[in-house]
Design a protein around this nucleic acid. Structure first.
Lengths: 254, 254
DNA sequence: TAGTCGTTTCGCCTCTCCCGAATACCAGTT
DNA sequence: AACTGGTATTCGGGAGAGGCGAAACGACTA
């Protein structure tokens, strides 16, 4: 599951990247801390981190090293790389206003869902942005919407790669159950997430298809369970589907 | 001037990072192209790029490799890492509205200026975001505002490291001239950029000081030269200085 | 002043990364 | 179908680079 058995990956590069990841998680770290955490010699950690600093990917503040703003440029680049992403940003905002719920545009990469654009709901005081967050496809509304419109072979590949880990009691854990649900989603046109990722939170997701017929991503709205049911919910779904369609159209015309 | 001869930088890591940089510049590339450009063997380029792919930092589309969305998370992290950056974002937007000019919040890192937040002017159709862009400090309004409030020793360090390259005919190229201007900037409280970075573009920049007395960054507005002069310009400066002060206050109170 | 904990330097040994050659692949072209 | 030029990819071996450990250095405490 965690594989790196026989491949020819560059160990040096891998440790460098692990350090980058660690610096994000810890919001900066010292040499010893890095060494302890990654099980390498302090001197080794030191070499890596100074290399990163010389390349200006890391800044040193006192004795702790932090990720530098060079990543800002890279992040901004990948976000604006595809013109379609720009369209998606606009409609994510529209969706947030019309639904008054937290809205997200997600795409698939390496078998995971990645939040590309997010917009807070009216009530939302989401202090910290979740752009770039990676989630599982099988436990989120947008993720399931995406899976539902992928070739079955691809879905199986993804399951093999990342598995179907349980995040809450409601998370779909069984492959057959998942495929059944995906069929259902295809029929009705949207996907649900009933506390499958986070207890107390429900979401609705709609696929966004590209002009080639491949699924491009998904739009979703989320909120506390008690504000996501009944006729209120039906209205939400309608708004969501409408905007997803507008986005598809807008993409097709560009 | 260019490089660190005798240091113990990890060559493997450095080439990996050069590849990342190349993939951004070219917006994706194939193995041969990378090898040619960085003067390494194709097989080597291949190993690097597959390592990056295995770590999910790069995606393969056909036979070309692209930067992946993992950088989105890193970029978002560094942008939101400091609470102060959040404040700056708000006031950058306010500045853009009140000045009706393109507004930018810049901080210094590794002797360069980095755009952390940008907001388009009223007329601006800046299609592509310049967040994360790296500029010289000596040829920009915000940059000079920052330099003016740094310890002199630090300024000299920076000049030694990055030099004073000419970007237009107006760029300050001489160290003494620069120090004279910095003194002037300190006196009047704001910095000017009269077509020193881009011909036809002028800008005004104001420092944003932190509570500790260190300079935290700078706010600036920019526009075509003919819309940046006379009494119109005086009003701009006033607005700019006012908002910079508000930002300083807001930071001090948090 | 001694003691502790962290970072940084440096020489050495080994392991890994880089190269080159061979192979696989693909799309035109004859 | 065979040939061709252009790619990507695999793989073995040699040289050089990266990782380790020891020791020096520096900051802070008792």
């Amino acid at each position: 599951m965690t594989e790196t058995a026989n491949d020819r990956s560059l160990k040096t590069t891998v440790t460098t990247l692990r350090i980058v990841e660690l610096l994000r998680e810890r919001d900066g770290a010292g040499v010893t801390e890095i060494a302890r955490e990654l099980d390498i010699a302090p001197s080794t950690a030191h070499t890596h981190v100074t290399t990163l600093e010389a390349q200006e990917y890391v800044v040193k503040e006192g004795d702790t090293y932090h990720l530098g703003l060079r990543f800002l440029g890279l992040g901004n680049f990948v976000r604006t790389r595809k013109r379609k992403f720009g369209k998606a940003e606009h409609y994510t905002n529209v969706l947030s206003e019309e639904s008054e719920r937290r809205s997200i545009f997600t795409v698939e990469e390496h078998g995971r869902g990645v939040y590309v654009h997010t917009a807070p709901g009216k009530h939302g005081v989401w202090t910290q942005s979740t752009v770039g967050k990676r989630v599982y496809l099988h436990s989120t509304a947008s993720g399931k919407a995406i899976l539902a419109h992928m070739p079955t072979a691809r879905v199986r590949e993804i399951i093999d790669r990342v598995g179907l880990p349980k995040e809450t009691e409601q998370t779909i854990h069984d492959e057959e159950a998942l495929f059944d649900e995906l069929a259902e989603i295809r029929e009705r046109g949207y996907a649900l997430n009933v506390e499958e990722q986070i207890s107390g939170v429900r979401a609705v997701g709609a696929p966004v298809m590209g002009p080639d017929g491949d699924v491009f991503g998904a739009l979703s709205v989320a909120g506390p369970s008690n504000r996501m049911k009944g006729e209120q919910f039906d209205r939400l779904t309608e708004v969501l589907l409408g905007i997803a369609e507008e986005l598809e159209l807008s993409i097709a015309l560009s």
